[in-house]
Design a binder for these strands. Structure first.
Lengths: 222, 222
DNA sequence: ACCTGAACACCGTTCAAGT
DNA sequence: ACCTGAACACCGTTCAAGT
């Protein structure tokens, strides 16, 4: 029996939670949420499906770990220069960019809002409220409103990615959505106007605009 | 063989999409998202699993139909009295209350943001922006920011409901989440303060506070 | 036209057995 | 201590066969 080609590749290093999480992220990034199964993962790791369970409790824990990994790294790199307002904007944008790069993390953030990754985002946007002059009693609502807005964006982003995964073009995909909105029997006037703007809008600009509105609202409290 | 007790109950009327959707909503409300399977649904409808596929294309369509049903009814009942500001608040609260009553709809709204139910919410909050004096060019960002915030709330609500489904007490559940936040090795100061407020906070008040902040931000544009 | 229910392909998870 | 992989319970969906 000849030496099989993948023999040298496997068992390079032992299985570990880090290696499992890293491989899971690779699959999620490259092939999307639906592609991450324990079978696919164990094949890629050249091991049995059950082996993974020695390192992670279940799929939920695995997904929380991947999300935590990606979000933690992103929040750590967010700039805190330029005053409290700038720091909050930077934190929100860091979260946005992480989700833009890893849309599957958006699904997971919304799915389990008590996971560590959420706390990193909350901390990053919340710490600077003091500096902004927001009174203590208003900081809970102020920070969770920002967080909720970020989570809403995360969910839509992930949904869009699932929808587009087979699609060629972004504008084309959004146009077909807008088309669907307009073709329906019960189109309402405001939705029709918005549908027209849907294909060409910029997600990042839209996100920033929302953050600015909320920051204006927060400023009005203090 | 004696007449089985459920015999008179079944086949009362023929299968229809309406009846399937209504039964699905019953299951979702009573037993949660995980309990809605085609097997459970077909058992409840006293039919074969495949029969449902004659009336709905697949599970996604079924879930979109249930969500649409529940949200459409809620938005229809939202008051439009008291000026544009009050109408927007009423629309947002109508969405909130619908999700509060049917948390599974929150999961579905976030999962497919292009579905009809989303358009109803967007229309309800968007039509009154003209009356608020928001310039046309700013209405896209203004309305989608509100929508995104509502979706973020929807997702968290649904997640909380999945988490609590076996739990006795709401305060107890939130306390255990806050506990988990505080016990962790890397607790950060702001998150610790928020954790302390988590168990006793009121979801509806929190939601309204967020809507007010965004409305303040929107008002600043005009 | 509408319904039946066995069958298919595929999951996450478990666990006796190996090293 | 760590890994293997068959087996289990359970999905959504299909489809030949019935009425």
């Amino acid at each position: 029996m000849p030496t099989s080609p993948q023999r040298s590749a496997r068992r390079k290093d032992a299985l570990s939670k880090e290696r499992i999480v890293a491989t899971a992220i690779e699959i999620l990034d490259a092939e999307g949420e639906a592609a991450l199964t324990f079978r696919a993962l164990s094949t890629r790791l050249a091991t049995g499906a059950g082996a993974i369970y020695w390192h992670v409790a279940n799929k939920d824990e695995l997904l929380a770990a991947t999300t935590n990994d990606v979000i933690t790294r992103a929040m750590k790199n967010a700039s805190v220069d330029g005053g409290p307002g700038a720091a909050i904007r930077a934190a929100a944008l860091a979260a946005f960019d992480a989700i833009d790069a890893h849309p599957w993390a958006g699904t997971q953030l919304v799915r389990e809002p008590w996971q560590p990754a959420i706390r990193h985002i909350l901390e990053a946007v919340g710490t600077h409220l003091d500096g902004l002059g927001v009174p203590k009693h208003a900081q809970f609502n102020a920070s969770t409103t920002l967080l909720t807005y970020i989570l809403g964006t995360a969910g839509q982003y992930a949904a869009g990615m699932r929808f587009m995964h087979q699609q060629t073009d972004r504008v084309e995909a959004l146009t077909s959505v807008a088309q669907g909105w307009s073709d329906d029997g019960d189109v309402t006037p405001f939705v029709r106007e918005m549908a027209a703007q849907l294909p060409e809008h910029d997600d990042r600009e839209q996100f920033i605009a929302g953050v600015e509105m909320i920051l204006t609202g927060i400023a009005a409290i203090s």
